[in-house]
Design a protein around this nucleic acid. Structure first.
Length: 874
DNA sequence: GCCTCGGAAGTC
DNA sequence: CTGGGACTTCCGAGGC
């Protein structure tokens, strides 16, 4: 009996098997059904392949140089080559042959052999599960029709009725279609590739597992562990104690029983996952099956020949791979979306839930874990449980999982690729799909050394120091994608030979690179981008409609989708300007930016000619001074003040001015939008550093580039500078100088708490296996403050992970190198170090002085000559 | 004190 | 062996 259901693909893999001596490859899709249970779909019927052509002949010549018979006889090849006709490869038509392969894992070897023979190999580095999505034009959300081979506890009753076989029979049936045994899922279905169908996206009820280990600092041993499972918005907590082996077995059994899709925790990538591996190996060495009992988290049967997929593995020292599941570190998600000043779990939860003390209370000294565990194990366990709950709360708050699912949906990949892979994977998914349908060959990803010669980037306009009143800010809408569309920029439309020149070609303004007119042939990428632009508009409209109708679930989903499309569109330029991407030519990236510079400079020139002052411009934005009288106030007067009308008039003039400019300079393929109106704009004269008082479409302070936004600044500087900007934009530059002097005096007299003076920078590092210690040899000089602070942390037994932000206090800057101490108050609750007040006063004066300089108050004047100085003996 | 360099973190 | 890009500012170390 057939079973039909909608589900979302979490991850895919494939395995080779023999069907009556003929080689077959089955695709395994790990899914979560819309109705809540997990499903493994075994898909048969597709054969892995790659495609080749003989570079020495063109289609009009019939003579073959290279022998296809020879290819057919190669042991990796399955059956005769199949003619697939002519395809476009780097501007030329070639005759292509499809070569079927016995096993996917022999592709790299076959690739090399064919290349040595002289063939050019294409479509030969595409993951076979991804191939299924490409060839059947599927995204992550699918409808499956198949026969039920196994229906376990959490599967629907109807499915259990269809399949009531015992596990032995199920095991046999699964092996008959190429599966490896009874996978730890709720349901196992078998079908052929034509039984899969694309469906509309829906929010999938993923199951999440969060865990945390507490370990001994002396021996690295695991002392205890905790885990939380979130299923259907309900959570269950679990704790594990006893000997190490039992703790690890307990965690593993829980995972295999609960069958989560997502595995999270705080810093699991760099701490808990590697520690699990290390401790398991400490106990069982290289006995894979024994190791699997301790750490077999892969979603495959717990059997001998699956040990390779059972054990979590770290690829290229970065992303962990747990087949069938998605490792999603809450630390990394928080870091990416929040960009916090510091990154400890305590700090991040304080940032997200400032009022909930329960969440960030600190009752365990983790640097003394051995003693704490000895003296009060219950509190340690409680602390451990809390540290598994917060990561789930973080993922929920940041909507991380929903965003990954939306990205998977718009890029038509599995959720794990959206969650863990890089931009080029998402774009591959769309580009290859379309190329395959358009008779265009798929070149391999380019390898070898990275390109040295840079292409030119965006244009940045000089900015004058000082205040400018009433500014209209205009932006090009999706600038790079629009340029790619309107000029038909694509590797498939690039004119490579002079003989192919046509009068209709689009010709780039500086390098005179030519692209075929879209009337002749539309490029792949312009087609895709145009489609994405339209789909973003559709999602935005659907979002608006859902909002009006009060349909919260739809509105949330549509907003996620439109945002994902935006992210995806913006990734195109980067990938096509890179040196490695399969469909790239460095001319493409260069053309895009030269058209961009050309467009924006032309507008600036015209405005200049008309005497309209362009105050600033960066890549796709222009700041233009509006024709407002100098008497108009730049800060909003009280509503009963006489000057309120003058302010309102100025605002109206600026709005009108902005709208008119937008209409005037917008053209097909380069739409200029009126983004914001500022009543005042200030810069001290450095590019990418400015402040503006926004008066439309909302009222707010806009700060870019300045220390206020920088994580490697310190709280006091951020606060003071922000206050200073508020005053300056309110025309109170004098009081801003006074205020600044007071703050500098306060720091000199040590009235400022050290917590406001923590400087934080990310620090690289690598674990040196040979010497069993952390190494910082990637720095040409390790004598940097944050590297020394990181080393101090390590010495104290605190966690260090490569790339983490390390907080420190400068204790003595008079010596070189300066003396610093790590900031441990967040984690250990220890006494803060004594700071070097002179250093902080100087840094404040320097940063703030750059700004006050615009009003003729220098750094030196800020540091001295204040009333308060005399009160404190300095 | 001036300069160069390596490095991190911003803007777009 | 592993990947979006360029443009920009500022900080600290270390040489002279």
């Amino acid at each position: 009996m057939l079973w039909e259901e909608e589900m979302c693909i979490i991850s895919g893999d494939n395995r080779s098997w023999q069907d009556e001596n003929s080689p077959k490859t089955v695709i395994e899709l790990w899914c979560r059904a819309k109705s809540g249970h997990s499903v493994l779909v075994l898909v048969n019927g597709l054969r892995p392949y790659l495609e080749i052509f003989d570079p020495n002949i063109s289609p009009d010549l019939t003579e073959k140089n290279l022998s296809l018979d020879f290819v057919e006889k190669m042991k990796e090849v399955d059956g005769p080559p199949k003619s697939v006709g002519n395809k476009l490869f780097e501007g030329e038509m070639k005759e292509f042959w499809r070569i079927y392969v016995c096993e996917t894992w022999s592709v790299p070897k076959l690739r090399d052999k064919l290349k040595k023979l002289g063939w050019i190999v294409t479509s030969a580095d595409i993951n076979f599960a991804q191939r299924l999505l490409l060839d059947c034009d599927l995204g992550p959300h699918i409808k499956v029709k198949g026969s039920v081979l196994w229906a376990d506890k959490r599967s629907p009753e109807e499915a259990k009725n269809i399949n009531n076989s015992n596990s032995q029979i199920a095991n046999q049936n699964i092996k008959k279609v190429g599966g490896s045994g009874i996978y730890p899922v709720d349901m196992i279905i078998s079908c052929t590739f034509d039984c899969l169908e694309k469906t509309l996206p829906f929010p999938t009820p993923f199951v999440t597992f969060s865990f945390d280990l507490e370990t001994s600092i002396k021996t690295n041993e695991i002392l205890c562990a905790a885990a939380v499972i979130q299923r259907d918005n309900e959570r269950s907590e679990h704790t594990f104690t006893g000997d190490e082996e039992n703790i690890m077995k307990g965690l593993t059994n829980l995972i295999r029983y609960e069958d989560p899709d997502i595995i999270t925790g705080y810093n699991i990538d760099n701490f808990d996952l590697p520690r699990m591996k290390e401790r398991a190996e400490e106990i069982y060495g290289k006995q894979k099956m024994k190791l699997s009992q301790l750490n077999g988290w892969g979603r495959v049967p717990l059997i001998e020949n699956e040990t390779k997929r059972l054990l979590p593995e770290r690829r290229q020292n970065r992303v962990w791979r747990i087949p069938g599941r998605i490792p999603l570190d809450a630390w990394w998600q928080a870091r990416q979306t929040l960009r916090p000043q510091r990154e400890s779990l305590r700090y991040v939860s304080q940032l997200l839930w400032p009022d909930d003390e329960e969440m960030h209370k600190l009752d365990i000294d983790s640097s003394q874990m051995d003693r704490e565990w000895e003296e009060r194990p219950e509190e340690v366990l409680e602390y451990c449980v809390r540290d598994t709950i917060i990561p789930i709360d973080i993922l929920n708050k940041l909507q991380s999982i929903g965003r990954k699912e939306a990205l998977a949906s718009v890029s038509m990949t599995t959720v794990d690729i959206a969650a863990t892979a890089t931009t080029s994977w998402w774009i591959d998914s769309l580009v290859i799909r379309l190329a395959d349908r358009s008779g265009i060959a798929i070149p391999m990803t380019k390898s070898g050394p990275r390109r040295r010669d840079q292409i030119a980037g965006g244009y940045v306009h000089e900015v004058e120091a000082g205040m400018r009143p009433w500014i209209a800010v205009l932006d090009f809408k999706s600038m790079y994608p629009s340029i790619m569309i309107s000029n038909n920029i694509c590797s498939t439309t690039l004119v490579r030979n002079e003989k192919d020149n046509s009068e209709e070609d689009n010709i780039s303004p500086i390098t005179n690179t030519r692209y075929i007119s879209s009337h002749t042939r539309k490029g792949l990428v312009p087609q895709l981008l145009e489609h994405l632009m339209q789909s973003r508009d559709l999602h935005k409209a659907a979002y608006k409609k859902a909002n009006e109708e009060g349909n919260e679930e739809q509105s949330f989903l549509q907003d996620q989708l439109q945002y994902a499309v935006k992210i995806l569109m913006n990734s195109f330029y980067g990938v096509f300007a890179s040196s490695f991407y399969r469909f790239t030519d460095k001319k493409l990236g260069a053309s895009i930016t030269e058209w961009a510079r050309h467009n924006i400079k032309e507008i600036i020139r015209q405005l200049d000619d008309e005497g309209k002052h362009v105050v600033y411009s960066d890549t796709d934005s222009i700041f233009v001074q509006a024709p407002v009288s100098n008497e108009a106030p730049t800060s909003r007067p009280k509503s009963n003040d006489l000057s309120i009308d003058s302010w309102k008039n100025a605002k109206a003039t600026t709005l009108d001015f902005g709208k008119k400019l937008a209409t005037r300079f917008s053209k097909e393929g380069a739409e200029l939008e009126f983004e914001t109106a500022l009543s005042a704009f200030f810069s001290h004269g450095a590019k990418k550093r400015y402040v503006g008082r926004v008066v439309w479409p909302r009222e707010e302070l806009l700060i870019r580039g300045y220390e206020v936004r920088r994580t490697d600044s310190f709280e006091l500087l951020r606060e003071t500078m922000k206050e200073m900007f508020e005053l300056i934009l309110d025309d109170q530059s004098w009081s801003s100088v006074e205020m600044t002097k007071t703050v500098i005096d306060d720091v000199k007299s040590k009235k400022i708490p050290a917590s406001k003076l923590v400087i934080s920078r990310s620090c690289k590092g690598r674990w040196d296996n040979k010497n069993s210690k952390w190494s910082f040899d990637m720095y040409s000089n390790e004598n940097l403050p944050y590297v020394r602070a990181a080393k101090d942390r390590i010495k104290l037994g605190l966690s260090f992970t490569p790339g983490m932000k390390v907080g420190y206090i400068v204790t003595d800057a008079s010596s070189s190198p300066m003396k610093v101490e790590p900031w441990l108050v967040d984690e250990l609750g220890t006494k803060p170090p004594e700071y070097d007040s002179e250093y902080y006063a100087k840094r404040l004066a320097k940063a703030l002085g750059r700004i006050t300089e615009a009003f003729n108050w220098s750094e030196k004047e800020l540091l001295s000559g204040s009333r308060q100085k005399k009160l404190f003996d300095f």
